[in-house]
Structure formats: structure tokens, C-alpha cells
């Protein structure tokens, strides 16, 4: 295998190629592991410039897609880094406390907090729905996700003042668990788009749930799941909507957890069997000894010219 050395003569990678590779590694980091990956990427690149640029471009994307949770400076609340809470690339709103956190993406920390401006906050009419839903969802997340963080954002129709126009809220739930000392990390992310359709007096929900887990003690095994679902309910008062929407979300997420459990239950006897059986079709260990004999007789017959 020593003839691999010839590859050293290949032209060196361009700045752009190195940058793309570095970003690819960073973006493919498992939940909660981008800092470890970054350290290794830096060592492999041996090029501070490329690393800095790659980190500056990849961290914001990773942080948003993993919906990481950062503590506000005064520890009064948490802010979720998501595309729904994004005001500018490094500013994220926490609607519950009406504050905007300025974040350092690469350090994954909040570096400054300011009150949200009126423009950044929804109208009183929308806020009533948002706030009621936030309260119900928080209760639910507190009950069900030990390390869960949630937020409700107003997206479309944020400044609608009174009934008559459609608007949309987005519920985000992010729960993650990092225990590198146990070689295990994981995250649960759900995004629920909730569209209040005024004319039809109906509220449409679209949910996307994503679960990832990584176990890496003397190996590297990862779980990666995605599921989407839809549902709807009647457009009612803010409080009634909040309760029925939370019940719908609870129902779908519980169902999804059950289906994940079922997938795991099916592994040993069904799914895994299509890759490799636990025992041979004969249900006894392979007869290595007999096969040798079988081959011996075949060899003899070949030598005698019988098998031809």
C-alpha cells in the first residue's frame, strides 16, 4: 500500500475547495458536537484563514438548523436560534420576554441583550394568540421534555390588528441532551407551522419532527429520523385555540414517539434480519468442519476426473 505516495504530486486544493470541505464537515456535525468537529477541522486544515471563514459561514447555519438554545446574559430566559426568531444574522428574538439577543455564532453564546422594538413585536391582536399558545405549549413541554425549550413566533401577518386577515404562528420545540462523557448526544426538534385562516375559520397545522442521536464509544452509530404530519382545528378564541392546538401537537408527538419505539422493536426480528440473520437458515452454527470434508471429496473427485 506504499504506492499511495504518488498522490502527493497532485496539485494542492484551492482556497475555495478547502473552504467547501471545511464547511461540509462543520455542517454534518452530530447534535451538540460542532465544537469538537471544529477543533479537528482546524487541525486538519492547518490554515487559519480558511478555518475562520468556514466557521463564520457554517456555524450560523448549523445553529439555526439544530435550533440551539442560548441563555440570555442575565440568565432570565433562553433564546432559540432559529430561522423564525432571526432578526439579522446575529440577532434572535425571544418573544416571551420581548428581548433580542445578540449572539456569537462560533462561540455559541449570547453576548448582548436589548429590548425588542415595536416593529419586531406582533400587534396586540396577534400577541393575544401567540401568548396564549406559548403558555399552553410551555406547560406541555415542561411536562413532557425534561430538557425541552420552546417558543412561539409570529411570522406572517405579524402586524394584523383585528380579525379579517390570515396570520401564521410557528411553534418550535427543541430538546437536546449532551453527555460526551457517556459518548452520547442527541436532539429532538419539532417545528409546527400554525396558519389561522380567517375566511374559513379554520386553523391548519403542519408539523415537522426530527430526531438525531449519536453513540460513539468504540464505534460510530447514528440515528436520524424525520417525520411530517398535518392536522387542523376550528378558529376560536385565543385561549381555546391554544388548548386545542396544544392537544393536537401533544397527540402527534406522542404518536411519533410511539412509532419510533415500534421501529426499534421491529429491528431485531424483522428489519435487521434483512441485512444479516442471527442464525443461519439452518438454525445451527455453520458446519465449518463438514464443509471441509465436502470440499475434500470434491477435490478428490476433481483429481480423479469425475466432476468434469
Amino acid at each position: 500500500m506504499s504506492d499511495e505516495e504518488e498522490e502527493t504530486t497532485e496539485p494542492e486544493l484551492s482556497y475555495k475547495q478547502k473552504l467547501e470541505i471545511a464547511k461540509w464537515f462543520l455542517l454534518n456535525s452530530p447534535p451538540g458536537e460542532i465544537q469538537y468537529v471544529a477543533k479537528d477541522v482546524k487541525a486538519v486544515l492547518k490554515d487559519e484563514n480558511v478555518y475562520e471563514t468556514a466557521a463564520a459561514e457554517a456555524f450560523p447555519l448549523y445553529n439555526k438548523s439544530h435550533m440551539i438554545c442560548l441563555q440570555l446574559l442575565d440568565r432570565s430566559s433562553d433564546v432559540l436560534v432559529t430561522s423564525f426568531s432571526e432578526i439579522s444574522e446575529d440577532e434572535y428574538i425571544d418573544p416571551r420576554t420581548a428581548q433580542v439577543a445578540v449572539v456569537d455564532h462560533v462561540k455559541q453564546a449570547c453576548i448582548e441583550v436589548r429590548p425588542a422594538s415595536d416593529e419586531e413585536l406582533p400587534s396586540a391582536y396577534i400577541e393575544e394568540y401567540r401568548c396564549a399558545l406559548d403558555a399552553e405549549i410551555s406547560k406541555y413541554v415542561g411536562e413532557v421534555y425534561p430538557k425541552g425549550v420552546c417558543s412561539v413566533y409570529s411570522t406572517k401577518g405579524k402586524h394584523v390588528e383585528e380579525p379579517g386577515t390570515d396570520f401564521e404562528l410557528v411553534v418550535v420545540i427543541s430538546a437536546s441532551r449532551h453527555s460526551p462523557q457517556n459518548f452520547c448526544n442527541g436532539s429532538w426538534r419539532s417545528i409546527w407551522n400554525v396558519v389561522f385562516e380567517d375566511e374559513l375559520q379554520i386553523v391548519e397545522l403542519r408539523g415537522r419532527m426530527q430526531v438525531g442521536a449519536h453513540y460513539f464509544e468504540e464505534g460510530n452509530v447514528q440515528l436520524d429520523t424525520k417525520h411530517e404530519c398535518k392536522d387542523s382545528t376550528a378558529f376560536q378564541s385565543a385561549d381555546d385555540c391554544a388548548i386545542s392546538l396544544t392537544n393536537i401537537i401533544r397527540h402527534h408527538e406522542t404518536e411519533y414517539l410511539n412509532s419510533l419505539q415500534t421501529s426499534y422493536l421491529n429491528l431485531p426480528d424483522n428489519t435487521f434480519k434483512d441485512l444479516r440473520r442471527k442464525l443461519p437458515v439452518t438454525r445451527t452454527l455453520f458446519p465449518w468442519h463438514n464443509t471441509m470434508q465436502f470440499n475434500l471429496t470434491r477435490d478428490i473427485s476433481k483429481e480423479l476426473g469425475i466432476g468434469k
Partner: peptide, 20 residues
């Protein structure tokens, strides 16, 4: 793989959102 590795990822899922 079946018992330990897949089992650990299942454990993680149940830590994130414990079954009812």
C-alpha cells in the same frame, strides 16, 4: 450493534422525550 449501539440511541430518544 443491535443491543448496545442501537439500544443507546433508543435510550437517548427516551431521555429526550420519556414515554408516557
Amino acid at each position: 450493534l443491535d443491543q448496545v449501539y442501537f439500544g443507546k440511541t433508543k435510550e437517548m430518544v427516551c431521555t429526550l422525550r420519556p414515554p408516557a
